[in-house]
């Protein structure tokens, strides 16, 4: 999918309600703050990244709650947590959740939050495919794509909010709320398409490191290719990601035959079915 042009973006932002939950706010400002905070050498700490992530995750959970199935949630956490042990940030407090919505999507939030929707989970065929999707989301967290996206979209801003956040100044809880709000908005807009390609590229490797067939993630993309893009359950993902076709093309160019030898690793179809379609 083509990048949303800036004027469309502006129109979207302008169309957002200005009152209400208090989470709609000026992305430009917050982004500028993040950028300046970084330039000033006060990068948001891991602890603050986790706080921002917790706030964004709470908002996502406000939009769609967790599926009430502890065994299923635990299974997805088992797979996801195992994947994270094969990354550069194995010690984040990683949390994985299945969101109770028919929409087809997956999300990550800073600090180690990863969500997959019931709609996407039910279209998968194996544990390796689940691992591929989770690994893609994990890569977004590893590369801090959401934090970067907020600052990248900035044009101007005041320093205060994120400096407060970066300084862990808890008297300015409002600042944290603003950053969280800006982060939540991102899910309606999407990340940079290069971030998505990078997450795919890292996702296949993380899955292979953890012992899974790395071609399961492209297999998921082929499943998505078959979905009618006008299917409303697919609307948000289609809007916020490059097309499955382009993602597959990019993966083909970068994978070549490099991961072929891992193609016979675990697929885990039977185990996946046992957990996701019990009885």
């Amino acid at each position: 999918m083509k990048r949303i042009t800036p004027w469309i973006l502006a129109a979207v932002l302008l169309s957002l309600p200005l009152s209400g939950s208090g989470f709609q706010l000026n992305l430009n400002k917050i982004g500028g703050i993040l950028q300046k905070a970084r330039q000033a050498g006060s990068e948001v700490s891991t602890a603050q990244e986790e706080r921002i992530g917790a706030g964004i995750a709470a908002n996502l959970l406000g939009a769609a709650p967790l599926v009430r199935d502890p065994a299923l949630q635990r299974y997805v956490n088992d797979v996801g947590r195992w994947l994270t042990l094969h990354t550069s940030r194995p010690d984040l407090p990683w949390r994985f959740g299945v969101l109770d919505t028919g929409d087809i999507n997956a999300f990550a939030a800073p600090g180690g939050y990863v969500f997959i929707t019931r709609g996407l989970l039910l279209r998968l065929h194996s544990e390796a495919e689940l691992a591929g999707v989770l690994a893609h989301e994990i890569a977004h967290v590893l590369k801090k794509h959401h934090l970067r996206a907020i600052e990248k979209n900035a044009r101007m801003g005041i320093l205060a909010d994120v400096l407060h956040v970066a300084a862990q100044d808890n008297r300015h809880n409002e600042s944290l709320q603003k950053v969280i709000g800006a982060g939540t908005e991102l899910y309606a807009r999407g990340l940079d398409k290069d971030d998505e390609y990078q997450a795919d590229r890292m996702g296949v490797v993380i899955a292979a490191r953890a012992g899974y067939d790395p071609f399961a993630l492209p297999a998921v993309l082929q499943t998505l290719e078959k979905i009618n893009p006008h299917d409303s359950a697919f609307a948000l993902m289609f809007k916020t990601h490059p097309t499955a076709e382009n993602r597959l093309r990019a993966l083909n160019a970068t994978m070549g035959e490099r991961l072929d030898r891992y193609g016979r690793q675990t697929e885990g179809a039977a185990r996946f079915v046992r957990h996701v379609h019990p009885r």
């Binding site: 995750a57 939009a63 769609a64 919505t101 028919g102 929409d103 929707t117 948000l236």
Partner: peptide
Amino acid sequence: RGLSEEDLTSARPNPAALKQL
């Protein structure tokens, strides 16, 4: 239906679900 753009931008935090997570 489902998790739309609007649902996301108007979502209110659900701290109970976060605890459950």
